[in-house]
Design a protein around this nucleic acid. Sequence first.
DNA 1: CAGCCTATCTATAAGTG
DNA 2: TCACTTATAGATAGGCT
Lengths: 224, 224
Amino acid sequence: MGRGKIEIKRIENNTNRQVTFCKRRNGLMKKGYELSVLCDAEVALVVFSNKGRVYEYASNDMKSTIERYMKASADNSNSYIVQETNAQYYQQESKKLQRQIDMLQSTNRHLMGEGLGSLNVKELKQMENRLERGIARIRSKKNEMMLAETESRQKRNTELEHENAILQAKIVENERLQQLTMMPGQEYNAIHAFLSRNLLSLDMMDTEPVVYRPLPEKKALYLG
Amino acid sequence: MGRGKIEIKRIENNTNRQVTFCKRRNGLMKKGYELSVLCDAEVALVVFSNKGRVYEYASNDMKSTIERYMKASADNSNSYIVQETNAQYYQQESKKLQRQIDMLQSTNRHLMGEGLGSLNVKELKQMENRLERGIARIRSKKNEMMLAETESRQKRNTELEHENAILQAKIVENERLQQLTMMPGQEYNAIHAFLSRNLLSLDMMDTEPVVYRPLPEKKALYLG
DNA sequence: CAGCCTATCTATAAGTG
DNA sequence: TCACTTATAGATAGGCT
Protein backbone atom coordinates (compact mmCIF):
# COMPACT_ATOMS: atom_id res chain seq x y z
CA MET A 1 0.00 0.00 0.00
CA GLY A 2 2.10 2.77 -1.16
CA ARG A 3 4.27 3.70 -4.06
CA GLY A 4 6.30 0.59 -3.50
CA LYS A 5 6.07 -2.61 -1.56
CA ILE A 6 8.18 -2.74 1.59
CA GLU A 7 9.64 -5.67 3.45
CA ILE A 8 8.45 -6.15 7.02
CA LYS A 9 11.64 -5.43 8.92
CA ARG A 10 12.91 -2.54 10.94
CA ILE A 11 13.09 0.66 8.92
CA GLU A 12 16.65 1.89 9.35
CA ASN A 13 16.12 5.43 8.08
CA ASN A 14 15.24 7.36 11.20
CA THR A 15 12.93 9.86 9.60
CA ASN A 16 11.12 7.27 7.54
CA ARG A 17 10.65 5.11 10.62
CA GLN A 18 9.25 8.04 12.55
CA VAL A 19 6.80 8.92 9.77
CA THR A 20 5.71 5.36 9.21
CA PHE A 21 5.24 4.90 12.97
CA CYS A 22 2.93 7.87 13.10
CA LYS A 23 0.92 6.83 10.07
CA ARG A 24 0.58 3.17 10.88
CA ARG A 25 -0.10 3.85 14.54
CA ASN A 26 -3.05 6.02 13.55
CA GLY A 27 -4.12 3.34 11.11
CA LEU A 28 -3.97 0.69 13.79
CA MET A 29 -6.07 2.75 16.16
CA LYS A 30 -8.63 3.45 13.49
CA LYS A 31 -8.84 -0.26 12.69
CA GLY A 32 -9.22 -1.02 16.39
CA TYR A 33 -12.04 1.48 16.67
CA GLU A 34 -13.78 0.10 13.57
CA LEU A 35 -13.52 -3.45 14.84
CA SER A 36 -15.01 -2.51 18.20
CA VAL A 37 -17.94 -0.71 16.55
CA LEU A 38 -18.65 -3.06 13.65
CA CYS A 39 -18.39 -6.26 15.66
CA ASP A 40 -19.43 -5.05 19.08
CA ALA A 41 -16.09 -6.01 20.55
CA GLU A 42 -14.03 -4.64 23.44
CA VAL A 43 -10.69 -3.51 22.08
CA ALA A 44 -7.66 -2.22 23.94
CA LEU A 45 -4.45 -1.26 22.32
CA VAL A 46 -1.15 -0.05 23.75
CA VAL A 47 1.88 1.07 21.78
CA PHE A 48 5.24 2.24 23.05
CA SER A 49 7.39 4.07 20.55
CA ASN A 50 11.04 3.08 20.57
CA LYS A 51 11.64 6.29 22.48
CA GLY A 52 9.28 5.15 25.22
CA ARG A 53 6.26 7.30 24.51
CA VAL A 54 2.92 5.62 25.18
CA TYR A 55 -0.01 5.64 22.79
CA GLU A 56 -3.20 3.87 23.62
CA TYR A 57 -6.67 3.18 22.41
CA ALA A 58 -9.46 1.52 24.33
CA SER A 59 -13.01 1.09 23.11
CA ASN A 60 -14.27 0.95 26.69
CA ASP A 61 -11.91 1.84 29.50
CA MET A 62 -8.28 0.82 29.44
CA LYS A 63 -8.07 -0.05 33.12
CA SER A 64 -11.24 -2.10 33.18
CA THR A 65 -10.30 -3.89 29.95
CA ILE A 66 -6.91 -4.75 31.37
CA GLU A 67 -8.51 -6.04 34.56
CA ARG A 68 -10.92 -8.11 32.52
CA TYR A 69 -8.00 -9.44 30.51
CA MET A 70 -6.05 -10.23 33.69
CA LYS A 71 -8.93 -12.13 35.17
CA ALA A 72 -9.76 -13.90 31.93
CA SER A 73 -6.24 -15.08 31.27
CA ALA A 74 -6.13 -16.68 34.71
CA ASP A 75 -2.90 -18.51 34.19
CA ASN A 76 -2.47 -18.02 37.91
CA SER A 77 1.15 -16.95 38.45
CA ASN A 78 -0.58 -13.81 37.25
CA SER A 79 1.01 -11.02 39.17
CA TYR A 80 -2.11 -8.92 39.18
CA ILE A 81 -4.36 -11.50 40.78
CA VAL A 82 -1.56 -12.58 43.06
CA GLN A 83 -1.08 -9.06 44.30
CA GLU A 84 -4.78 -8.54 44.74
CA THR A 85 -4.96 -11.76 46.74
CA ASN A 86 -1.85 -10.86 48.67
CA ALA A 87 -3.21 -7.50 49.62
CA GLN A 88 -6.43 -9.05 50.84
CA TYR A 89 -4.59 -11.79 52.68
CA TYR A 90 -2.26 -9.48 54.51
CA GLN A 91 -5.08 -7.10 55.27
CA GLN A 92 -7.04 -9.88 56.95
CA GLU A 93 -3.91 -11.09 58.65
CA SER A 94 -3.30 -7.61 60.01
CA LYS A 95 -6.80 -7.45 61.40
CA LYS A 96 -6.40 -10.83 63.05
CA LEU A 97 -3.09 -9.87 64.55
CA GLN A 98 -4.51 -6.59 65.77
CA ARG A 99 -7.29 -8.44 67.57
CA GLN A 100 -4.74 -10.77 69.12
CA ILE A 101 -2.75 -7.77 70.29
CA ASP A 102 -5.83 -6.21 71.83
CA MET A 103 -6.51 -9.41 73.74
CA LEU A 104 -2.94 -9.72 74.90
CA GLN A 105 -2.83 -6.11 75.97
CA SER A 106 -6.05 -6.57 77.89
CA THR A 107 -4.67 -9.65 79.60
CA ASN A 108 -1.47 -7.80 80.32
CA ARG A 109 -3.29 -4.90 81.85
CA HIS A 110 -5.36 -7.26 83.93
CA LEU A 111 -2.21 -8.96 85.12
CA MET A 112 -0.87 -5.56 86.12
CA GLY A 113 -4.10 -4.85 87.95
CA GLU A 114 -5.44 -2.31 85.47
CA GLY A 115 -8.68 -2.13 83.56
CA LEU A 116 -10.45 -4.55 85.83
CA GLY A 117 -13.86 -3.01 85.30
CA SER A 118 -15.09 -5.73 82.96
CA LEU A 119 -14.22 -8.65 85.22
CA ASN A 120 -16.50 -10.38 87.70
CA VAL A 121 -15.52 -11.83 91.06
CA LYS A 122 -14.82 -15.28 89.69
CA GLU A 123 -12.53 -13.93 87.00
CA LEU A 124 -10.80 -11.75 89.55
CA LYS A 125 -10.13 -14.78 91.72
CA GLN A 126 -8.72 -16.56 88.71
CA MET A 127 -6.43 -13.63 87.97
CA GLU A 128 -5.36 -13.55 91.59
CA ASN A 129 -4.47 -17.22 91.48
CA ARG A 130 -2.53 -16.87 88.28
CA LEU A 131 -0.62 -13.93 89.66
CA GLU A 132 0.12 -15.76 92.86
CA ARG A 133 1.50 -18.67 90.93
CA GLY A 134 3.49 -16.25 88.77
CA ILE A 135 4.90 -14.36 91.70
CA ALA A 136 5.78 -17.63 93.42
CA ARG A 137 7.67 -18.80 90.35
CA ILE A 138 9.42 -15.47 89.99
CA ARG A 139 10.45 -15.44 93.62
CA SER A 140 11.68 -18.97 93.39
CA LYS A 141 13.68 -18.16 90.29
CA LYS A 142 15.05 -15.02 91.89
CA ASN A 143 16.07 -16.82 95.04
CA GLU A 144 17.65 -19.57 93.03
CA MET A 145 19.65 -17.06 91.04
CA MET A 146 20.70 -15.10 94.09
CA LEU A 147 21.73 -18.28 95.87
CA ALA A 148 23.73 -19.38 92.84
CA GLU A 149 25.42 -16.01 92.72
CA THR A 150 26.28 -16.12 96.41
CA GLU A 151 27.67 -19.58 96.06
CA SER A 152 29.78 -18.71 93.09
CA ARG A 153 31.10 -15.67 94.88
CA GLN A 154 31.87 -17.77 97.93
CA LYS A 155 33.76 -20.24 95.81
CA ARG A 156 35.74 -17.49 94.13
CA ASN A 157 36.59 -16.07 97.53
CA THR A 158 37.95 -19.37 98.70
CA GLU A 159 40.02 -19.67 95.55
CA LEU A 160 41.41 -16.20 95.92
CA GLU A 161 42.26 -16.66 99.55
CA HIS A 162 44.10 -19.81 98.72
CA GLU A 163 45.98 -18.13 95.90
CA ASN A 164 46.84 -15.25 98.16
CA ALA A 165 48.29 -17.52 100.79
CA ILE A 166 50.49 -19.22 98.19
CA LEU A 167 51.70 -15.87 96.87
CA GLN A 168 52.53 -14.60 100.31
CA ALA A 169 54.46 -17.72 101.06
CA LYS A 170 56.42 -17.26 97.83
CA ILE A 171 57.30 -13.71 98.76
CA VAL A 172 58.55 -14.65 102.17
CA GLU A 173 60.62 -17.41 100.60
CA ASN A 174 62.09 -15.00 98.03
CA GLU A 175 63.01 -12.53 100.68
CA ARG A 176 64.71 -15.19 102.72
CA LEU A 177 66.76 -16.34 99.72
CA GLN A 178 67.78 -12.81 98.84
CA GLN A 179 69.03 -12.07 102.33
CA LEU A 180 71.02 -15.27 102.40
CA THR A 181 72.78 -14.52 99.09
CA MET A 182 75.31 -11.82 99.52
CA MET A 183 75.32 -9.35 96.70
CA PRO A 184 77.59 -6.35 96.25
CA GLY A 185 76.68 -2.67 96.21
CA GLN A 186 74.08 -1.21 93.89
CA GLU A 187 72.55 -4.48 92.73
CA TYR A 188 71.85 -5.64 96.23
CA ASN A 189 70.37 -2.36 97.24
CA ALA A 190 68.05 -2.28 94.26
CA ILE A 191 66.66 -5.68 94.94
CA HIS A 192 66.30 -4.91 98.58
CA ALA A 193 64.34 -1.78 97.84
CA PHE A 194 62.13 -3.70 95.41
CA LEU A 195 61.34 -6.31 98.00
CA SER A 196 60.62 -3.70 100.63
CA ARG A 197 58.07 -2.11 98.36
CA ASN A 198 56.43 -5.47 97.86
CA LEU A 199 56.20 -6.07 101.57
CA LEU A 200 54.67 -2.72 102.10
CA SER A 201 52.06 -3.50 99.44
CA LEU A 202 51.23 -6.77 101.03
CA ASP A 203 50.77 -5.12 104.40
CA MET A 204 48.34 -2.69 102.90
CA MET A 205 46.42 -5.51 101.36
CA ASP A 206 45.82 -7.10 104.70
CA THR A 207 43.65 -4.20 105.78
CA GLU A 208 42.09 -3.64 102.39
CA PRO A 209 40.25 -6.47 100.61
CA VAL A 210 41.97 -6.02 97.30
CA VAL A 211 41.50 -9.72 96.63
CA TYR A 212 37.79 -9.11 96.03
CA ARG A 213 38.52 -6.88 93.14
CA PRO A 214 38.01 -8.18 89.63
CA LEU A 215 40.84 -9.98 87.86
CA PRO A 216 43.72 -9.84 87.28
CA GLU A 217 44.85 -10.25 90.86
CA LYS A 218 48.50 -10.73 89.98
CA LYS A 219 48.68 -7.13 88.95
CA ALA A 220 47.03 -6.15 92.20
CA LEU A 221 49.88 -7.83 94.05
CA TYR A 222 52.46 -5.81 92.10
CA LEU A 223 54.29 -8.95 91.16
CA GLY A 224 53.91 -9.00 87.36
CA MET B 1 -12.32 -1.94 1.16
CA GLY B 2 -14.49 -4.57 -0.28
CA ARG B 3 -17.15 -4.92 -2.85
CA GLY B 4 -19.08 -2.13 -1.30
CA LYS B 5 -18.46 0.62 1.19
CA ILE B 6 -19.84 -0.07 4.68
CA GLU B 7 -20.84 2.35 7.35
CA ILE B 8 -18.95 2.10 10.62
CA LYS B 9 -21.72 0.93 12.90
CA ARG B 10 -22.64 -2.37 14.47
CA ILE B 11 -23.25 -5.09 11.85
CA GLU B 12 -26.68 -6.47 12.67
CA ASN B 13 -26.47 -9.63 10.59
CA ASN B 14 -25.01 -12.16 12.98
CA THR B 15 -23.09 -14.22 10.46
CA ASN B 16 -21.66 -11.19 8.73
CA ARG B 17 -20.58 -9.74 12.04
CA GLN B 18 -18.88 -12.98 12.99
CA VAL B 19 -17.02 -13.16 9.67
CA THR B 20 -16.02 -9.54 9.69
CA PHE B 21 -14.84 -9.89 13.29
CA CYS B 22 -12.60 -12.77 12.34
CA LYS B 23 -11.16 -11.04 9.28
CA ARG B 24 -10.65 -7.65 10.82
CA ARG B 25 -9.27 -9.10 14.03
CA ASN B 26 -6.60 -10.92 12.05
CA GLY B 27 -5.96 -7.78 10.06
CA LEU B 28 -5.56 -5.76 13.24
CA MET B 29 -3.10 -8.22 14.68
CA LYS B 30 -1.11 -8.28 11.48
CA LYS B 31 -0.98 -4.50 11.48
CA GLY B 32 0.13 -4.55 15.11
CA TYR B 33 2.88 -6.98 14.29
CA GLU B 34 4.02 -4.95 11.29
CA LEU B 35 4.09 -1.74 13.33
CA SER B 36 6.18 -3.34 16.04
CA VAL B 37 8.70 -4.69 13.53
CA LEU B 38 8.90 -1.78 11.10
CA CYS B 39 9.11 0.91 13.76
CA ASP B 40 10.75 -0.99 16.58
CA ALA B 41 7.78 -0.41 18.87
CA GLU B 42 6.28 -2.37 21.73
CA VAL B 43 2.71 -3.27 20.83
CA ALA B 44 0.07 -4.98 22.91
CA LEU B 45 -3.43 -5.63 21.75
CA VAL B 46 -6.41 -7.19 23.50
CA VAL B 47 -9.77 -7.92 21.91
CA PHE B 48 -12.85 -9.40 23.55
CA SER B 49 -15.48 -10.74 21.17
CA ASN B 50 -19.04 -9.84 22.09
CA LYS B 51 -19.32 -13.41 23.36
CA GLY B 52 -16.50 -12.81 25.78
CA ARG B 53 -13.69 -14.69 24.06
CA VAL B 54 -10.23 -13.11 24.41
CA TYR B 55 -7.82 -12.56 21.57
CA GLU B 56 -4.50 -10.93 22.14
CA TYR B 57 -1.31 -9.94 20.46
CA ALA B 58 1.82 -8.67 22.14
CA SER B 59 5.09 -7.92 20.39
CA ASN B 60 7.00 -8.52 23.60
CA ASP B 61 5.21 -10.04 26.58
CA MET B 62 1.67 -9.08 27.42
CA LYS B 63 2.15 -9.01 31.17
CA SER B 64 5.33 -6.95 31.07
CA THR B 65 3.83 -4.55 28.52
CA ILE B 66 0.78 -4.09 30.71
CA GLU B 67 2.97 -3.45 33.74
CA ARG B 68 5.00 -0.96 31.74
CA TYR B 69 1.79 0.72 30.69
CA MET B 70 0.47 0.77 34.24
CA LYS B 71 3.60 2.35 35.55
CA ALA B 72 3.85 4.82 32.66
CA SER B 73 0.29 6.05 32.98
CA ALA B 74 0.83 6.84 36.64
CA ASP B 75 -2.41 8.69 37.12
CA ASN B 76 -2.21 7.41 40.68
CA SER B 77 -5.71 6.17 41.56
CA ASN B 78 -4.24 3.39 39.45
CA SER B 79 -5.53 0.21 40.97
CA TYR B 80 -2.49 -1.77 39.96
CA ILE B 81 0.01 0.42 41.73
CA VAL B 82 -2.36 0.86 44.63
CA GLN B 83 -2.69 -2.84 45.10
CA GLU B 84 1.01 -3.38 44.83
CA THR B 85 1.54 -0.72 47.47
CA ASN B 86 -1.25 -2.09 49.59
CA ALA B 87 0.19 -5.57 49.56
CA GLN B 88 3.56 -4.25 50.62
CA TYR B 89 2.06 -2.04 53.28
CA TYR B 90 -0.01 -4.76 54.86
CA GLN B 91 2.85 -7.19 54.68
CA GLN B 92 5.06 -4.83 56.64
CA GLU B 93 2.21 -4.09 58.99
CA SER B 94 1.77 -7.80 59.63
CA LYS B 95 5.42 -8.19 60.46
CA LYS B 96 5.31 -5.27 62.84
CA LEU B 97 2.21 -6.59 64.54
CA GLN B 98 3.74 -10.04 64.82
CA ARG B 99 6.76 -8.59 66.58
CA GLN B 100 4.48 -6.71 68.94
CA ILE B 101 2.62 -9.94 69.67
CA ASP B 102 5.85 -11.75 70.42
CA MET B 103 6.81 -9.06 72.88
CA LEU B 104 3.44 -9.06 74.55
CA GLN B 105 3.42 -12.82 74.78
CA SER B 106 6.85 -12.76 76.31
CA THR B 107 5.75 -10.16 78.87
CA ASN B 108 2.64 -12.18 79.54
CA ARG B 109 4.57 -15.33 80.15
CA HIS B 110 6.91 -13.48 82.43
CA LEU B 111 3.96 -12.13 84.35
CA MET B 112 2.68 -15.68 84.68
CA GLY B 113 6.07 -16.77 85.92
CA GLU B 114 7.06 -18.65 82.77
CA GLY B 115 10.04 -18.37 80.48
CA LEU B 116 12.13 -16.51 83.05
CA GLY B 117 15.42 -17.89 81.74
CA SER B 118 16.41 -14.69 79.99
CA LEU B 119 15.87 -12.38 82.95
CA ASN B 120 18.46 -11.27 85.47
CA VAL B 121 17.90 -10.66 89.17
CA LYS B 122 17.16 -6.99 88.73
CA GLU B 123 14.51 -7.68 86.09
CA LEU B 124 13.03 -10.39 88.26
CA LYS B 125 12.70 -7.98 91.13
CA GLN B 126 11.00 -5.53 88.81
CA MET B 127 8.55 -8.21 87.69
CA GLU B 128 7.90 -9.14 91.28
CA ASN B 129 7.08 -5.58 92.16
CA ARG B 130 4.76 -5.20 89.20
CA LEU B 131 2.97 -8.40 90.10
CA GLU B 132 2.64 -7.36 93.71
CA ARG B 133 1.09 -4.09 92.67
CA GLY B 134 -1.19 -6.00 90.27
CA ILE B 135 -2.28 -8.52 92.84
CA ALA B 136 -2.94 -5.76 95.37
CA ARG B 137 -5.16 -3.96 92.89
CA ILE B 138 -6.98 -7.14 91.98
CA ARG B 139 -7.57 -8.05 95.61
CA SER B 140 -8.83 -4.59 96.35
CA LYS B 141 -11.19 -4.74 93.38
CA LYS B 142 -12.34 -8.22 94.36
CA ASN B 143 -13.00 -7.24 97.94
CA GLU B 144 -14.87 -4.18 96.82
CA MET B 145 -17.06 -6.26 94.53
CA MET B 146 -17.68 -8.92 97.13
CA LEU B 147 -18.61 -6.32 99.69
CA ALA B 148 -21.00 -4.73 97.24
CA GLU B 149 -22.53 -8.10 96.51
CA THR B 150 -22.94 -8.93 100.17
CA GLU B 151 -24.59 -5.62 100.81
CA SER B 152 -26.99 -6.01 97.94
CA ARG B 153 -27.84 -9.51 99.12
CA GLN B 154 -28.39 -8.23 102.63
CA LYS B 155 -30.74 -5.61 101.35
CA ARG B 156 -32.65 -8.14 99.28
CA ASN B 157 -32.92 -10.38 102.37
CA THR B 158 -34.45 -7.65 104.40
CA GLU B 159 -36.94 -6.95 101.65
CA LEU B 160 -37.88 -10.58 101.34
CA GLU B 161 -38.28 -11.04 105.07
CA HIS B 162 -40.55 -8.07 105.17
CA GLU B 163 -42.61 -9.40 102.28
CA ASN B 164 -42.78 -12.78 103.93
CA ALA B 165 -44.11 -11.37 107.14
CA ILE B 166 -46.83 -9.52 105.26
CA LEU B 167 -47.85 -12.64 103.38
CA GLN B 168 -48.00 -14.74 106.50
CA ALA B 169 -50.18 -12.19 108.16
CA LYS B 170 -52.48 -12.28 105.16
CA ILE B 171 -52.81 -16.03 105.39
CA VAL B 172 -53.64 -15.98 109.05
CA GLU B 173 -56.25 -13.36 108.39
CA ASN B 174 -57.76 -15.41 105.51
CA GLU B 175 -57.97 -18.51 107.68
CA ARG B 176 -59.68 -16.64 110.45
CA LEU B 177 -62.26 -15.25 108.02
CA GLN B 178 -62.93 -18.67 106.52
CA GLN B 179 -63.50 -20.27 109.90
CA LEU B 180 -65.87 -17.54 110.90
CA THR B 181 -67.96 -17.89 107.74
CA MET B 182 -70.18 -21.01 107.86
CA MET B 183 -70.26 -22.84 104.57
CA PRO B 184 -72.24 -25.98 103.69
CA GLY B 185 -70.93 -29.43 102.72
CA GLN B 186 -68.57 -29.93 99.77
CA GLU B 187 -67.67 -26.36 99.25
CA TYR B 188 -66.63 -25.85 102.84
CA ASN B 189 -64.62 -29.03 102.87
CA ALA B 190 -62.78 -28.12 99.67
CA ILE B 191 -61.73 -24.75 100.96
CA HIS B 192 -60.77 -26.22 104.29
CA ALA B 193 -58.55 -28.82 102.59
CA PHE B 194 -56.97 -26.10 100.48
CA LEU B 195 -56.16 -23.98 103.49
CA SER B 196 -54.72 -26.97 105.31
CA ARG B 197 -52.36 -27.59 102.47
CA ASN B 198 -51.31 -24.01 102.62
CA LEU B 199 -50.63 -24.23 106.31
CA LEU B 200 -48.60 -27.34 105.84
CA SER B 201 -46.55 -25.57 103.21
CA LEU B 202 -46.04 -22.62 105.41
CA ASP B 203 -44.89 -24.83 108.29
CA MET B 204 -42.36 -26.48 106.03
CA MET B 205 -41.12 -23.12 104.97
CA ASP B 206 -40.37 -22.13 108.49
CA THR B 207 -37.67 -24.78 108.69
CA GLU B 208 -36.49 -24.28 105.18
CA PRO B 209 -35.26 -20.86 103.99
CA VAL B 210 -37.45 -20.73 100.90
CA VAL B 211 -37.40 -16.98 101.07
CA TYR B 212 -33.76 -16.97 99.96
CA ARG B 213 -34.63 -18.65 96.70
CA PRO B 214 -34.75 -16.60 93.56
CA LEU B 215 -37.96 -14.89 92.52
CA PRO B 216 -40.87 -15.30 92.13
CA GLU B 217 -41.57 -15.82 95.80
CA LYS B 218 -45.34 -15.73 95.41
CA LYS B 219 -45.20 -19.01 93.57
CA ALA B 220 -43.00 -20.44 96.27
CA LEU B 221 -45.66 -19.70 98.79
CA TYR B 222 -48.33 -21.55 96.80
CA LEU B 223 -50.55 -18.54 96.86
CA GLY B 224 -50.77 -17.49 93.20
C1' DC C 1 9.56 17.99 10.78
C1' DA C 2 4.26 18.42 9.62
C1' DG C 3 0.95 18.21 5.93
C1' DC C 4 -0.60 17.00 1.59
C1' DC C 5 -0.63 14.21 -2.75
C1' DT C 6 -1.19 10.14 -5.28
C1' DA C 7 0.33 5.86 -7.28
C1' DT C 8 0.29 1.70 -5.54
C1' DC C 9 -0.37 -1.92 -2.31
C1' DT C 10 -3.49 -4.26 1.24
C1' DA C 11 -7.51 -5.48 3.45
C1' DT C 12 -11.74 -6.99 3.11
C1' DA C 13 -17.11 -7.17 1.75
C1' DA C 14 -19.64 -9.88 -0.69
C1' DG C 15 -20.18 -13.72 -3.44
C1' DT C 16 -19.36 -18.78 -4.59
C1' DG C 17 -18.45 -23.83 -3.88
C1' DT D 1 -18.59 -22.89 8.97
C1' DC D 2 -14.72 -22.72 6.05
C1' DA D 3 -11.88 -21.75 1.80
C1' DC D 4 -11.34 -19.27 -2.15
C1' DT D 5 -12.28 -15.36 -5.40
C1' DT D 6 -12.72 -10.76 -6.80
C1' DA D 7 -13.97 -5.99 -7.02
C1' DT D 8 -13.25 -2.21 -4.48
C1' DA D 9 -12.50 0.73 -0.31
C1' DG D 10 -8.92 1.99 2.44
C1' DA D 11 -4.04 2.46 3.92
C1' DT D 12 0.22 4.17 3.07
C1' DA D 13 5.34 4.81 0.87
C1' DG D 14 7.63 8.08 -1.17
C1' DG D 15 7.77 12.57 -3.01
C1' DC D 16 6.84 17.44 -2.67
C1' DT D 17 6.04 21.89 -0.25
